[in-house]
Design a protein around this nucleic acid. Structure first.
Length: 851
RNA sequence: GGGUCGCUAGCUCAGCGGUAGAGCAUCCGGCUUUUAACCGGCUGGUCCUGAGUUCGAAUCUCAGGCGACCCA
């Protein structure tokens, strides 16, 4: 054989992604293939990934996120919809400022450099993103509108300033919203244990929307159940009552408590108030006053869950239901801003009260019991279940749920109580004492108070000349030129607000900007929002289940109420993708992670320092665990298509994905096989084997194709990309089996369809192959094939015969055979005769097409 | 303690009343440009356990075990 000819063939046979991917990426950009179409008559589809923070490097989590969204966007486009698939940057935030402190780089330059680097990394993934829609939240023409929307909220009374105990992150040197502190009292960003600080801060009244945010969760059927549950729990609605306790020592002040357990009113043995509660003002005793300020001090670094502390004030309240005197305590576990800052202590029926009473030897009075007979034994923990009343005067014996209704009636009639719905959700603290954020557009005038900046004066720009160093907070305070300003109302000296907004504010409306990203004179156009929103499919990490997703819902509702658009919920369907993990090697004794290059034998990993055996753990990729895998390296080696296929195939999207090199290779091999299929066809074109069974083969292969179309469509629509790829593989296996035996015409049809089916997953190889089949148009502009239900039906099938539920024989039978024929044929089968063995046949069950 | 989800081949996952499947790994064979690549093929399963419903259960019901997450 001629050598040069052979080399040529080998070259052609080889799938080399490097030669094709870049070529198509460039062509797609040149042709503006992914420019958003906005036609009148077509259905729209808005596909959105949670936009990234420009940390500087693309990691696997990003890749997974964007590839998932890309498959959906491409599929919807092939289905003939107008698709909006944009990308942007969540660009304000602390890392930029920290880089400035550590390395003296300007945050803006740092951020913009990162963006351009990450963008180039994103390009090689071959995403169908419309880059003309791109923006960064730190751009002046974006944050101008963040400020504009802040003022919209201000107009509708949803913005206010309040002095209160707030969460202070001592590492990041800023305050945090409640959502940004985890259940262990640690900051979501820095991991530092937060402290309490009394500060005057800006809040958004998200609590005004508590009820709506909760109720509308029910309609979000396209959201994962667990995200809805988490939001439900966070909003934390409880139905209860406000009860007014009169004070023995004061006529003016009375004490209101919120309780969900009005039925335990006879069991109240103390009242607990927060150290900041107004009743503490009537305490005259010097020693007690010191104790209070002492407790306030302790409060600042206090972990409520650890230990409950408090003391008796000597004040007395009157229980309205029986006029008993009860002592008032100050207690650390009562929060200022939840409810009324005071609770009624019912130690017998509330675990927190029980622990407090136990510690300070306060009386524990049991008023509810499961079984009336054994009502007076000592208790070791609070009884929080339902039961019957005891020790409750005339009400003994009734059920506690009955008592709830009865006591509330009495309270209403006598005027010492009323029904109340309480939410755990508290207002959103949005001030941050940092430089690299969106300035709050407020001017603080000593005479007029805080005044919103006028719309025409927006944006309030960040001053560029500020020197950032680690010793100060509120860098904006340093710039006198920027800060000192005349009050626009009275002209007297005033100062700009020097706090910036929580970056979650910037990300709470970015999805509203994309449809109108090019607009200069408005944040968006109402009609465009009404058309493109809600986002049809939102994809991102579950870590935003409460944070971003709750804020975004709130802002959408608030802006809708300002008549800016008519959309009530921003995200119709939500997919929370799992983490990308890979093997990390941990020394059990030292707790240290060992980098891969220090391990000699990967199958028997040993710590070179102390020769102990290493544990292999699959954990989220991170620098500290030395288990990060760089997307760029993988793409360089195998190409983007393989990386995409692997990531989609390895696990269902919402589950964690374990990185495996051999599985990546497996996907590369699969694509190589696909590649070869086309080259064999192109090289053998015209050659057609004469085959008498051609018709059967063609029917089979058409059947496989239609099954593939059906299943892949279904799988993509249900976000089951792993099984969709599995179907692609089955289809390819079917093709290679029967391909030799079918007509050239059909071969081409089969290969064309395979191209389109593969296109959402592996856009480059399918584009290349599509063109090799002789087209000049992009495969991504084709129509997704419809399956033919008739082609799937078999005209004969293997009938399974079960006797007593066990498979005993299989016979071939035609699809249109009547039941009688089936019966007759079955009974003729030798195996059936053997198993029945002259026994009486009780019942014959025929399931059409199967059994 | 309560809730949700999961447990199927060595691994990662499909199947969700009717013949137990895919990819990777293993094994065998072929081929060649032999620290291996590629092609073809074969294996491989108490479907976590137990009971129930059913002609028939991986699939439905109940109980238990293990694991993950959320809430307290």
């Amino acid at each position: 054989m001629d050598k040069s000819h052979k080399t040529n063939l080998t070259f052609k046979n080889l799938y080399e992604p490097n030669l094709i991917e870049k070529k198509w990426q460039t062509k797609w950009v040149k042709d503006k293939l992914y420019k958003t179409q906005d036609s009148e008559n077509k259905e729209k589809f808005y596909a959105l990934s949670m936009f990234p923070y420009p940390s500087g490097n693309l990691h696997m989590g990003h890749v997974r996120n964007y590839v998932i969204t890309d498959v959906i966007a491409r599929y919807q486009k092939l289905k003939g919809k107008d698709v909006l698939h944009p990308m942007g940057w969540d660009a304000f935030g602390l890392p930029a400022e920290n880089a400035a402190i550590e390395r003296g780089i300007n945050p803006e330059i740092w951020t913009k450099d990162n963006i351009s680097h990450m963008k180039s990394q994103l390009r090689v993934l071959g995403l169908s993103v419309d880059w003309e829609k791109e923006f960064a939240t730190c751009n002046e023409d974006y944050y101008k509108w963040t400020q504009f929307l802040f003022l919209e909220l201000f107009k509708s009374g949803l913005v206010y300033k309040k002095k209160s105990e707030v969460n202070w992150d001592p590492i990041d040197k800023t305050v945090l919203a409640n959502e940004q502190v985890d259940s262990e009292g640690k900051s979501w960003r820095s991991g530092a244990t937060v402290e309490k600080k009394l500060l005057n801060q800006w809040y958004l009244k998200i609590t005004n929307y508590a009820e709506e945010l909760l109720d509308d969760l029910k309609n979000l059927n396209g959201w994962p159940e667990r995200v809805r549950t988490m939001q439900e729990n966070w909003i934390g609605r409880s139905n209860g009552a406000i009860i007014k306790f009169n004070l023995e020592d004061s006529e003016e002040i009375n004490l209101k408590v919120f309780t969900t357990r009005i039925d335990t009113l006879f069991g109240v043995t103390y009242i607990a108030v927060s150290p900041n509660h107004e009743v503490t003002s009537i305490i005259k005793d010097k020693e007690l006053k010191d104790k209070i300020s002492n407790l306030k001090e302790i409060f600042k670094n206090y972990d409520v869950e650890k230990e409950k502390i408090g003391f008796n004030t000597g004040l007395k309240a009157i229980n309205p239901i029986n006029n008993n005197e009860i002592p008032i305590w100050v207690a650390s576990y009562v929060l200022d801003d939840y409810g009324t800052g005071a609770v009624m202590g019912v130690p017998a029926h509330d675990q927190r009260d029980y622990e407090f009473a136990e510690k300070y030897k306060i009386i524990i009075k049991k008023v509810i019991t499961k079984d009336i007979k054994e009502s007076n034994e000592n208790i070791k923990s609070a009884f929080e279940e339902n039961g019957f009343l005891i020790n409750s005067d005339n009400y003994d014996g009734i059920s506690n749920s009955e008592a709830k209704i009865k006591f509330l009636d009495i309270a209403k009639n006598k005027g010492w109580g009323e029904e109340k719905i309480q939410y755990k959700l508290r207002d959103w603290l949005i001030s941050r004492q940092r430089y690299w954020g969106c300035p709050i557009p407020i001017i603080n005038c000593s005479k007029c108070g805080p005044i919103p900046v006028e719309t025409k004066d927006l944006p309030v720009k960040l001053p560029k000349e500020v020197k950032i160093d680690s010793n100060k907070i509120n860098f904006l305070n340093q710039s006198n030129e920027w800060q000192n300003i005349k009050c626009p109302r009275c002209g007297s000296k005033s100062k700009r607000e020097s706090d910036t907004m929580d970056t979650f504010m910037c990300s709470s409306w970015y999805f509203l900007r994309y449809p109108c990203a090019e607009l200069n004179d408005k944040p968006f156009i109402k009609e465009k929002i009404n058309k493109w929103l809600p986002v049809d499919q939102y994809v991102g990490g579950v870590e935003h289940a409460i944070l971003h997703l709750l804020y975004a819902r709130f802002l959408t509702k608030a802006l809708k109420d300002n008549n800016l658009f008519d959309i009530n919920e921003p995200f119709k369907k939500l997919l929370t993708q799992g983490m990308v993990q890979s093997a990390a090697y941990k020394n059990k004794n030292t707790g240290r992670y060992i980098p891969l290059n220090k391990i000699k034998d990967i199958n028997n990993p040993i710590d070179p320092d102390d020769n102990s055996k290493l544990e292999i753990l699959f954990e989220k990729m991170s620098k500290s665990k030395y288990n990060g895998i760089d997307p760029e390296t993988v793409i360089k080696k195998y190409g983007a298509d393989t990386a995409r296929m692997f990531i989609l195939f390895k696990a269902p999207p919402e589950k964690d994905l374990e990185w495996g090199d051999s599985d990546v290779e497996g996907q590369f091999r699969f694509l190589s096989r696909v590649w070869k299929l086309y080259y064999e066809y192109l090289n053998d074109n015209g050659l057609e084997k004469v085959n008498i069974n051609k018709e059967t083969y063609e029917k089979n292969i058409l059947r496989s194709m239609n099954i593939a179309i059906k299943e892949i469509s279904h799988d993509i629509e249900n976000n089951q990309f792993n099984t969709a790829i599995s179907e692609l593989m089955k289809f390819c296996n079917a093709i290679s089996q029967d391909f030799k035996n079918i007509s050239s015409n059909l071969k081409k049809i089969i290969l064309q369809n395979l191209c389109i089916l593969l296109a959402p997953f592996s856009p480059h190889i399918s584009e290349e192959l599509w063109h090799l089949l002789g087209s000049n148009e992009s495969v991504h502009l084709q129509n997704w094939p419809e399956y033919d239900p008739k082609a799937i039906i078999l005209n004969s099938y293997e009938l399974v015969i079960q006797i007593n539920g066990k498979v005993r024989d299989k016979i071939n039978i035609s699809t249109d055979a009547s039941e009688d024929i089936i019966k007759q044929k079955s009974l003729e089968s030798p195996n059936v005769i053997k198993w029945i063995d002259n026994k009486e046949i009780r019942k014959i069950i025929i399931v059409k097409g199967k059994l």
